[in-house]
Design a protein around this nucleic acid. Sequence first.
DNA 1: CACTTTTTCACTCGATTAATCACAACACCT
DNA 2: AGGTGTTGTGATTAATCGAGTGAAAAAGTG
Lengths: 267, 267
Amino acid sequence: MDASENIEEAIEVLQQLGLKEYEARCFVGLTRLETGTAKKLSELTEVPRTRVYDAIRVLEAQGLVEIQHSSPQRFRAVSLDEATETLRDQYEDRVERLHDALETVEIVDEDDEEPIQQVWAMSGQDGIENRTEDLIETTTDEIVLVIGDESLLTDDLVDTLQEVENGIDLLLGAVNESLEEELRAAVPNATTFISGLEWLHGENAEADETAIGRLLLVDRSTILVSSIVPDTKVEQAIFGEGFGNGLVVIARRLMAQGLISPHDPIS
Amino acid sequence: MDASENIEEAIEVLQQLGLKEYEARCFVGLTRLETGTAKKLSELTEVPRTRVYDAIRVLEAQGLVEIQHSSPQRFRAVSLDEATETLRDQYEDRVERLHDALETVEIVDEDDEEPIQQVWAMSGQDGIENRTEDLIETTTDEIVLVIGDESLLTDDLVDTLQEVENGIDLLLGAVNESLEEELRAAVPNATTFISGLEWLHGENAEADETAIGRLLLVDRSTILVSSIVPDTKVEQAIFGEGFGNGLVVIARRLMAQGLISPHDPIS
DNA sequence: CACTTTTTCACTCGATTAATCACAACACCT
DNA sequence: AGGTGTTGTGATTAATCGAGTGAAAAAGTG
C-alpha cells in the first residue's frame, strides 16, 4: 500500500515546516488514531513512549493537538483542515513580520562601483518564476518569452500573461507545436511562434543535454535565460539588465537574425 | 535606533522560516547593501568571510539571492516582495503536500472506549481561533460568544460572525461597554450584551489574575472556554462536546442563571 | 499496602551547525 | 614577470541540538 508512503511524506513535510521528528511522527500518528494514549501512539509511531509527552506538549502549544487531562492522558489531533489552516496562519504571520521588519531597514550608504555588464545567476523554480512574472508586469513596450518546457507554464504565469496591457507587444515562443498550441489557447492576445532555439540542442549539442527552460526579453533591455539541468531537474537562470548589457546585446542580435522571433529584425 | 532591532527581528524570523543563522544574517545583510561582496557582507553581518559563500549558495538555491560570477563575486538580494512571495509559495506548497498526504491516510481501526465526559485542552491563539471559527460555522441553532479581551476580536473572527446565517441566534457578550460597542458595530445582526462573567475575577479572584479570554457555547452542546495567562500572554482553552458533557452542563447552568446571557433561562 | 502503569526528568550519544585555519587561485601593482 | 594582498575552497575543531535510554516520582489498581 502507498499509505505508508504518504505517512512518510507527511512526516517529512512536517519536519520541513519546522517540527522535530518526534513531533511530526506523533502528529501523523494522531491523525490516524482519532484519539490515543501515549502508549498507543508510541506503538504506532515508533516514538519512545517516554518522549511522546514532550512532543505532544509542543504540538499542543502550536494548536495542532488537544490534550485530555485524565489518567492516562488522551491526545487527539485537530482536524486536518484546522491544522493546515493553523500552519498557514503561522507562516503568513512570520512572512509578514519579516516584511515589516525589512521594509523599514534597507540600504547602507554605498561607495558605488561600476554599473557595467552585470550578469546575475539565480536558481530554483520558484524564485525564477517570481522574477519572470515581476519582469512581465513592469514591461512598457514589448515582451518576448520563449518557453522550453511545459512544466514551466504554470497557472500563475498564464495569469500574469493574460493581464498584460493591450499596448504591449506580447510574443510567445514554444519549442514545439503542442506547446505553441497550448500557449495560443491560454493567451489569446499574444502572437505565438515556434522558436528557432536549436542553438542549445542544435549546433552546440555536445555531450550534456542541457534543456532550455525559458527565455524572456523585456523591452529589449532586460533578459532572463534559464535552463534545466538534466539530472536534478533544477532550473538555473542568468539575468542581465541594461540596454548595453552584453547578454542583452546578444539576445537582440539573435532576434535580429530571426532566431527567437518570427518578426523582422531591428538591429 | 530601532533599525538594529528590526534587523535582529528579521534574522530571527528568517531562522524560524527554516534558514540557518549565517544564511539569515547574509540575506538581511544583502537587503541593506544593494550589492555586496563576501568581504563587505562579512564585515556588515559578522559572518566569517569564508562561510559567506556557503550561505549565499543555499540562498541562491532558494531563489532569494542572485550571484554575479565575477571576481570577486557580487551578491544581491532579490526585492523584498519577490522574496516574501517566494517564501510564501514555498510554504504553501508544503502545506498542500501535507494536506494531500494526510487526507488519503486517516484512521486505524479502533477498539473504542467510553465516549463520556471528554474535556480537551489546547493552547495557542491561532489554533484556538481556528477552532472557534470552525464551531461557529457548523452551528445550526444558537451561538453564545463572550469575548473577554479585545485582542481576540480579529478581522477573521468578525468575518466569520458576519456570515452566520439568519436563522441562527447570535448572542455576543463583552466584558465592558467599549467592547460591546465594538461588537455591535462590527456584527449588526447579533444581540449583544455585557456579560456577568465576574465568576473569574469575582468570587474566585484568588491570587493569580487569570484573565478570561473567550467563552463559546454552540447549540447548547459544545463549549469552548479560554483564558489568557498573565505573564506570557498565551491563550489556553478547554473544550467539551456533547449535551451531557460536564462542562457543557455547567455552562447551561450558568446561562440558566442569566450569567452569560441576557436571556431568560431554559433549564 | 504491594504492584503495575503512567509521567517526568536527567543524561548519553550522535549529528548538525557554528567557528577557525590552512592553502590554492586569482587580481593588481609596479 | 614577480611580489602582494585579496578571494574562494576545503579540512578541522568546538559547540549546540535533537534522538534515544533509563531512573525514579506520581498516579492507579487490586
